[in-house]
């Protein structure tokens, strides 16, 4: 059965579950460190930022394994590469924009969401050349803007439920992307496999930037 084979591939061959765990562990450990020394002195840190920071970290722990999965093969056919650039650009831009937009407003949420979405969109979309790269740029741009705009517009309308919903839909989409990569690359040669350092580095970077932006970063007039 293909799905059973996929589950085995995800768990044993590519260690994607282990990657999720490493990303979560790194991010939460870093956050605990920040909390011990700095964030616990920030007024209302947990009620104000805890929820969105928690889901931002969960989102990164789903995005990074997908990025790692793409990096293992590096080269894809045009259609697959475009789908990879679009999915990763859109989802990373949307999630980052949504969670930052929820605490800091639309401008900084859009800037951060677009930056992350476009960067990851290009980085992953270039696996098939210029088409995937362009797709990544467009998707990251759109996702970052849409994420923060959605967050701002839902501020008084069950924003937290929406945050959970957005996370679940993104998780399912990324799961689908990993399945597509598996289907497309069964015969392909792997370039790299052990990317633990890559995951730790990006988890630290994204958690640090997100936390700093949420707590100390600039915010829109309505959020001051």
């Amino acid at each position: 059965m293909t799905f059973r084979k996929f589950a085995k591939y995800v768990n044993e061959e590519e260690n994607l579950v282990k990657t999720v765990f490493i990303s979560l562990l790194t991010s939460f450990a870093l956050l605990a460190f920040f909390y011990m020394f700095k964030l616990r002195y920030v007024e209302n840190f947990i009620p104000k930022y805890g929820f969105f920071l928690f889901f931002a970290i969960l989102s990164y722990s789903l995005i990074l394994p997908s990025v790692k999965h793409v990096k293992i093969y590096r080269e894809f056919a045009c259609m697959s590469g475009m789908m990879i650039g679009m999915t990763i650009g859109m989802i990373s831009g949307f999630l980052a924009g949504f969670y930052i937009g929820s605490t800091n407003g639309m401008f900084i949420g859009s800037v951060f969401g677009m930056s992350l979405g476009i960067f990851l969109g290009i980085w992953n979309g270039k696996c098939c050349g210029i088409m995937g790269t362009l797709e990544g740029i467009m998707a990251g741009f759109m996702g970052g803007l849409m994420g923060s705009m959605t967050a701002l517009m839902m501020f008084n309308d069950n924003l937290k439920y929406m945050a959970v919903l957005v996370f679940l839909v993104s998780g399912i989409t990324l799961f689908g992307l990993n399945y597509m990569i598996y289907k497309e690359t069964r015969e392909a040669e792997k370039r790299k496999n052990d990317e633990t350092f890559f995951i730790i580095f990006w988890s630290i970077l994204l958690t640090t930037v997100t936390t700093w932006l949420m707590v100390f970063g600039p915010r829109s007039v309505l959020f001051q």
Binding site: N11, E12, V17, K18, V20, F21, L24, L25, F28, L31, N44, I46, P47, G50, F51, L53, F54, L58, K160
Partner: peptide, 24 residues
């Protein structure tokens, strides 16, 4: 090994979530 990682992920999420999801 995979089951162990799943269990650890759930423990991490539940543990940290309990602390961080205390919202107003």
């Amino acid at each position: 090994k995979t089951t162990l990682y799943f269990a650890l992920i759930i423990i991490l999420i539940v543990g940290v979530g309990f602390f961080m999801l205390k919202g107003n």
